[in-house]
Amino acid sequence: MGNFLVYLGSFGLSFVSQAGGMFLLLVTTLSLTFKPPYRVRHLFKQMEFVGVNSLIVVVLTALFSGMVIAFQSYRALSKFGGESLLGGLVALSMVRELGPVLTSLMVTARAGSAMAAELGTMRVTEQIDALQVMAVHPVHYLVVPRFWAAVLMVPLLTVIADAVGIAGGYLVGVMLLKVDAGIFVERMRDMVEWIDISSGIYKAFVFGGLLALIGCYKGYNASGGAEGVGRATTEAVVIASVAILVGDYILTSLLF
């Protein structure tokens, strides 16, 4: 019992100190964003890395999720003759939830982990110290471009995921399960409002910032050689994934 309390206490302390550290990193990142020199090339490079290179996984995940939802929903809907709602249901699930959440999780796995590994390696090989010694602010050089690349690219990828997911639902619903194409599209138009789409995109902004911040924080504060970099990478992925899901609940219940 005592041990458990000690464990709980140290967990609580580390949670608070890490959350504090991440908040501080966020403040530093935001305040350095508009400080010259503007590293536009770095930003584009990171946008390519976060966005373009994640495209295939995001498309695949969204496509199959859309297809699965169509199958599952069809089974449920057909019990009371509601097949006509299929299009709306698939689209709503995609744009409100699955689009932003799945995209963010995929980008976390691909790019968030890479940010932690890259910065972690730079930390343990003193490359971050080298930046500092050469009077270059490491957060300005390393974190700012990564943060903004994720904040910009995750919403963009989300829009693509939304579209691809709906296409997947259409594929299964219309081609396979023979729901009338006109009804599928019509119902989708009726049921999905602009706010559904925009709420998903707002979420994606937040998740993008979150995953970059956590990845960068973990890498930036890595220590202990190769093993430490590995630990930082794993923790970045786990924490960012949990944060995205918890954040999703909070955003959904608060805002929409």
């Binding site: 090989t125 003193e126 490359q127 110290d129 080298a130 010694v133 050469m134 009077a135 602010h137």
Partner: peptide, 23 residues
């Protein structure tokens, strides 16, 4: 502060024992 150090450090040339080259 870190900002003050940054200004000061431009006058320094520092060689790390392990080099610390950007890989």
């Amino acid at each position: 502060s870190e900002a003050q150090w940054q200004r000061l450090r431009r006058r320094f040339g520092f060689l790390f024992q392990e080099g610390a080259l950007f890989d």
